[in-house]
């Protein structure tokens, strides 16, 4: 599903050039659950953003579902993102002015779905996440765990094949963190590919493979292991 070859990302600010990613070559198969680990500043989030087509690499190739996507414009990337990739962020990134339901149905609006379709899909996603009773709440009326569950509902509502999660439990206590990880696990079991950045070895345990990054390079691309039962 994902394949990168000699991927490189360089940030240039004023006179300083920082290499965030250097010669990254990885492959993620459909249905995999991959955790990206490494110390702060190693390039995990940058890599995730490139995988999510939120950012583009400076050099190298990126194949998403078999297509070369590294040189696309923001407009073209946006088209591919829509409906194919779901995002989960550490800080949830729900729109504060919209209710839980409105947040969840937003990606469907951008896909041009009808109001009836949106209602059905959003309610079904919220139900799966156990958030239906809170559908009319605003983000600031929810706990962190609830907000993240709403964010996951939003990530899956379009039926995205790939979920990219950036430290999904980073802002949660251990109880809520576990809940979220269980949800991700069950999504993966239903066939969704997940790439997750995490600092937590405990969370990484949920993944089938762990890729370690250090100073922008892959130091260990891990081995597929048996799923934790």
């Amino acid at each position: 599903m994902i394949k990168t070859e000699h991927l490189k990302k360089v940030y240039t600010t004023d006179e300083i050039e920082t290499t965030a990613l250097n010669d990254i070559n990885i492959t993620v198969e459909e249905g995999e659950f991959v955790a990206l680990m490494g110390p702060s500043g190693c390039g995990k989030s940058t890599f995730l953003n490139i995988l999510g087509l939120l950012d583009s690499p400076t050099e190298g190739d990126y194949y998403f579902m078999g297509d070369q996507v590294s040189g696309l414009s923001e407009r073209e990337r946006s088209k591919i993102r829509k409906g194919n990739i779901g995002f989960i962020f550490q800080s949830f990134n729900l729109i504060d002015e919209l209710t839980v339901f409105e947040n969840v149905e937003l990606p469907l609006q951008y896909l041009g779905k009808s109001s009836e379709e949106r209602k059905q899909s959003a309610e079904s996603a919220l139900e799966r996440m156990g958030m239906l009773p809170r559908r009319n709440h605003f983000p600031n009326q929810l706990s962190g765990g609830q907000q993240q569950r709403a964010a996951i509902a939003r990530a899956v509502v379009t039926g995205a094949k790939l979920i990219l999660a950036d430290e999904p439990t980073g802002n949660l206590d251990s109880g809520h963190g576990k809940e979220v990880m269980e949800l991700l696990k069950s999504l993966n079991e239903q066939g969704t590919t997940i790439v997750m950045v995490t600092h937590s070895p405990l969370d990484a345990e949920y993944a089938g493979r762990v890729i370690h990054l250090l100073d922008g390079k892959v130091v260990d691309s891990g081995v597929q292991k048996e799923m934790i039962s």
């Binding site: 946006s78 990606p107 896909l111």
Partner: peptide
């Protein structure tokens, strides 16, 4: 900007 960012991540286009 956060709202705009999220909307973009979720597929909003510039014209929209």
């Amino acid at each position: 900007s956060k709202e705009v960012g999220i909307r973009k991540v979720l597929g909003a286009e510039k014209s929209g």
